[in-house]
Design a protein around this nucleic acid. Structure first.
Length: 419
DNA sequence: TCTGGGGTCCTAGGACCC
DNA sequence: TCTGGGGTCCTAGGACCC
């Protein structure tokens, strides 16, 4: 059986762990730049604040309802996630970390307790040890575990946050209850098409013919149907090596010249290189993109990307920066207000198994240099060592007006308790 | 004034090979 | 009159997830 453990309103719950005074009150967390709402407590959801709501448009509603607003604090969320996953892995080594706030556990047959009791044990320990409430769905397939999780979340009173689908009647009842757009793997486009055919629930979906599903939703849809029918088709995926890595940001203001863009792109390339080294990969291709603000149709729009094949695989921040700046220079045009840029690296090879080429290869001396930079940055704080092309004067700032302390990852931010 | 960031997988079609 | 058959690799685009 698969158990899906999902943290409730994860980012909002993280903010509450060290602010117990906020329990029962509406809390929202904003995206980078304090742009839009990316997490909401149940109380905030009840105020009809949608996911992705632009913060500036909802400011009056926040004020009126005393909504507690936070800037995204990914240092905190990442650390809390790590704590959660560590606790879950104690219960079950056979685990897939599916996202920052979700994990699938593969439960082996239990002797002493029922599945439901097991789920309750996991829920209690996870919540007590991290302070974050979780919901758990247990079922014979991953897609059905997702369905069970939905039920646990939707009916916290009745289920106490744990729901098990272990009989066919329960499976069918659940599928008839779940509307098609809530099914894992069915997004907006598929919903539109299915609704047009009068397919409204997950159950309706399982009644479609294999041929139709395969033709219109490809093999992915076929797998989903199997899973919903209770036929295990998807297994845990444990390989955690990424296939693409990106660092992209919107800017607080618009840039019209290439200089500030060069600085941003350098910083993004350095960040990609760091992430590459963390997973011991080198990349063979790099893409840079820039674009104007799509929400301003009154301004001239421009959007381009440039993908370059590197002459040799590398994870050196210096080399990637050089290539990224080259790419940027090729696509930059004056006369536009740039709002966003990014660097994406792809086409990886293992760092310890790099194929050399005859004429050009990476600067080997960068390897120990990057190790030293990584070490210093880890010791003295992120980006302590930077390239000269980066923002050495710390001019660039993300809008983060409501940032909470880094309670768990910064010594000076640890809370003091007065007794 | 102000609207996020980071991923995965699949398919069709073109270019190429013998 | 009539013009084969069987592959691989790559890319862009579309769908999805959190």
């Amino acid at each position: 059986m698969f158990a899906l453990v999902d943290c409730n309103n994860f980012y909002a719950s993280c903010e509450r762990v060290f602010r117990p005074d906020l329990v029962g009150k509406p809390v929202v967390v904003l995206s980078n730049n304090d742009g839009c709402v990316i997490a909401r407590s149940n109380e905030a959801k009840k105020l009809n604040i949608p996911m992705g709501a632009p913060a500036f448009k909802y400011e009056p509603l926040f004020q009126k309802n005393k909504v507690h607003v936070f800037s995204a604090n990914f240092a905190l969320y990442g650390d809390m996630s790590h704590r959660m996953m560590t606790i879950l892995s104690d219960f079950c080594a056979d685990m897939e970390i599916y996202s920052i706030d979700e994990a699938f556990l593969k439960l082996s047959p239990l002797q002493d307790v029922s599945l439901h009791e097991k789920g309750c044990q996991i829920r209690d320990k996870a919540t007590q040890w991290t302070g974050i409430p979780v919901s758990i769905g247990i079922a014979p397939t991953k897609a059905l575990a997702k369905v069970a999780n939905h039920i646990a979340k939707k009916y916290p009173e009745e289920t106490k946050g744990v729901y098990v689908i272990d009989q066919d009647e329960k499976r069918i009842k659940a599928l008839k209850w779940l509307s098609i757009d809530k099914v894992w793997g069915i997004g907006r486009q598929h919903t539109k098409r299915l609704n047009a055919m009068n397919i409204k629930t997950a159950y309706d979906f399982t009644q479609l013919s294999d041929t139709w599903i395969k033709k219109h939703l490809s093999i992915v849809g076929q797998r989903l149907k199997n899973e919903l029918m209770g036929i295990p088709t998807l297994d845990l995926e444990k390989l955690n090596i990424k296939k693409t890595i990106a660092t992209t940001r919107s800017f607080d203001e618009n840039y019209t010249s290439i200089e500030p863009l060069k600085e941003r792109v350098s910083t993004f390339a350095v960040s990609c290189a760091e992430k590459l080294r963390k997973q011991h990969s080198c990349c063979n291709s790099l893409m840079v993109f820039i674009h104007t603000n799509g929400h301003r149709p009154d301004l001239p729009q421009y959007s381009r990307n440039m993908l370059i094949k590197l002459p040799y695989p590398t994870n050196s921040g210096i080399e990637l920066t050089q290539f990224a700046i080259q790419a940027l220079s090729l696509i930059f045009k004056t006369g536009y207000h740039y709002k966003k840029a990014g660097v994406i690296v792809m086409d990886f090879t293992p760092a310890d198994n790099v194929q050399q080429t005859l004429f050009q290869h990476r600067n080997e001396r960068h390897i120990p240099l990057m190790q030293t930079i990584d070490m210093l940055n880890q010791l003295y704080g992120q980006q302590k060592i930077r390239l000269a092309s980066q923002d050495t004067k710390r001019v660039w700032k993300m809008k983060q007006e409501k940032l909470s302390p880094r309670y768990t990852t910064k010594l000076s931010d640890i809370i003091t308790i007065h007794i």
